[in-house]
């Protein structure tokens, strides 16, 4: 009996496997082959995971309020206006957080 397998593709070694679609297949071996053909041919691919759809748990914005309901500004680097030079790695974290904050604002 065929079932649906969710497909996660890793573009390059060391990167993250991110969801890119799904395939119909009767078993794990076939799912891997279909996924390789459908999702690993055009885009750069280093590795693919297939996971039975039934095994995937989901929680969405109706179930929970992502990011909470109260203002948690104190958790962000941007809350601390120090006016001093920061170590490179702290600046990097700062930039990543600003980016995440901005995208949360847009969403």
């Amino acid at each position: 009996m065929t079932q649906i397998w969710e497909v996660f593709r890793q573009e390059e070694k060391g990167g993250y496997h991110t969801h890119c679609g799904n395939v119909h297949a009767p078993d794990r071996e076939m799912a891997k082959q279909f996924a390789a053909v459908q999702h690993g041919r055009r885009k750069p691919t280093n590795s693919i995971w297939v996971v039975p759809k039934d095994e995937v748990g989901e929680i969405d914005g109706d179930d929970v309020s992502f990011g909470g309901t109260t203002d948690k500004g104190y958790r962000w680097t941007t809350a601390y206006n120090l006016q001093t030079r920061q170590a490179e790695e702290v600046e990097e974290s700062d930039a990543e957080q600003q980016d995440a904050e901005q995208r949360r604002g847009e969403a």
Binding site: Y80, L82, V90, E92, S93, A100
Partner: peptide
Amino acid sequence: EPYAHAMDKVCFEEGFHVKHGED
């Protein structure tokens, strides 16, 4: 690789700790 991935998330958060500490 799993260690490196853990560090991605840790470093993302850690900037807040250091700046809060400096504050």
